[in-house]
Design a protein around this nucleic acid. Structure first.
Length: 142
DNA sequence: GCCAACGTTGGC
DNA sequence: GCCAACGTTGGC
């Protein structure tokens, strides 16, 4: 099991949009960055991820599950671009803000902090557990 | 293959 | 709304 983080601008695709799709989930399409694509290629079905609202909100709002591994992005004919499918699992009880993460020494080397423009990122297990707890979710119950 | 110009993302 | 960081493009 590996852990990931998906960034979205809520005005384009929000947590509410994601939850509205239910268990059917949705393609995480539109990624046009090699590094982010390579991260998606590493994902396995059943892996979990954080759903992060960029721009105005700047906080992790929910937990998602990978339900389909990397496949061609249906929004382009360009075969370089691939995406996974994800579904919403549950919201965080309390969103975890970027500033709360930055305030913690032990989370300061997360790509969220060090590589702010990367839209799909890996999350180490250690960080996953901590952020779940900060958000009021028991990582053992996922 | 270098690098200037340009476009995009996302924090502030 | 601004701008820093970073990615991409294209001329040489």
């Amino acid at each position: 099991m590996h852990y990931w983080l998906f960034k979205s601008e809520p005005s384009t695709w929000s947590w509410d949009d994601q939850t509205a799709k239910g268990d059917a989930g949705e393609e995480w399409d539109g990624v046009r960055n090699y590094q982010a694509r390579n991260v998606m290629r590493e994902m396995k079905k059943g892996d979990l991820g954080f759903f992060y609202h960029s721009q105005k909100d700047r906080e992790i709002v929910g937990i998602v599950e990978v339900i389909a591994e990397a496949h061609p992005d249906s929004t382009t004919d360009d075969e370089r671009w691939e995406c996974v499918d994800i579904k919403a699992v549950k919201p965080l009880e309390t969103p975890v803000t970027l500033s709360a993460i930055k305030a913690r020494e032990d989370l300061s080397d997360m790509p969220l902090v060090t590589q702010s423009r990367l839209s799909v990122q890996p999350v180490l297990r250690e960080y996953w557990d901590k952020i779940c707890r900060m958000g009021g979710v028991d990582p053992e119950e996922l």
